[in-house]
């Protein structure tokens, strides 16, 4: 067992699961989406991105790209949430929350690609 692989897999999966956890539920209902979960998703995604630095392979490059996409989308989602919650006079409306959640849905897609890549990498590694 390779500890580096465990940590890598852990963070990639945790990024996807946290993202999913935030995303799931009625899109426009702020009570269905915990903001701390979004925060955790951002942090874990950033860590996953850093973990993917320095891999010279083609698959490593795609890994890094998916993580960058996911991080960017999640950061955008949290900026939208902050804007709606603290700047906009209308407050956290149904539409604003739907926007935040759909952003996180985009990040979820990138995270799913990342997980698929992880699985593909693992399978092809065992065949060798």
């Amino acid at each position: 067992m390779n500890l580096e692989k465990v940590i890598f897999g852990f963070f990639v999966l945790l990024a996807a699961t946290l993202n999913f956890g935030f995303f799931v539920g009625d899109m426009g209902d702020p009570h269905m989406h915990n903001i701390y979960e979004l925060f955790a998703a951002v942090v874990v995604n950033l860590i996953a991105t850093v973990l993917k630095f320095g891999d010279r392979t083609q698959i490593g490059a795609v890994h890094l790209a998916t993580s960058l996409v996911a991080s960017l989308q999640l950061i955008a989602a949290s900026v939208m949430w902050t804007w709606a919650n603290q700047v906009s006079s209308a407050g956290l409306t149904h539409g604003a929350m739907a926007g935040v959640v759909s952003m996180s849905a985009g990040a979820l897609l990138a995270n799913l690609v990342s997980v698929v890549l992880l699985v593909v990498e693992t399978v092809s590694f065992q065949r060798r």
């Binding site: 925060f39 942090v43 860590i47 973990l51 630095f53 320095g54 010279r56």
Partner: peptide, 24 residues
């Protein structure tokens, strides 16, 4: 570049962790 990134992986992750823990 790869060498820089690889060497800096642990410090960057550490900074992210400290930062997020402080924020939360």
């Amino acid at each position: 570049v790869l060498l820089v990134l690889r060497r800096l992986r642990v410090p960057i992750i550490l900074v992210i962790c400290i930062f997020s823990a402080s924020v939360v």
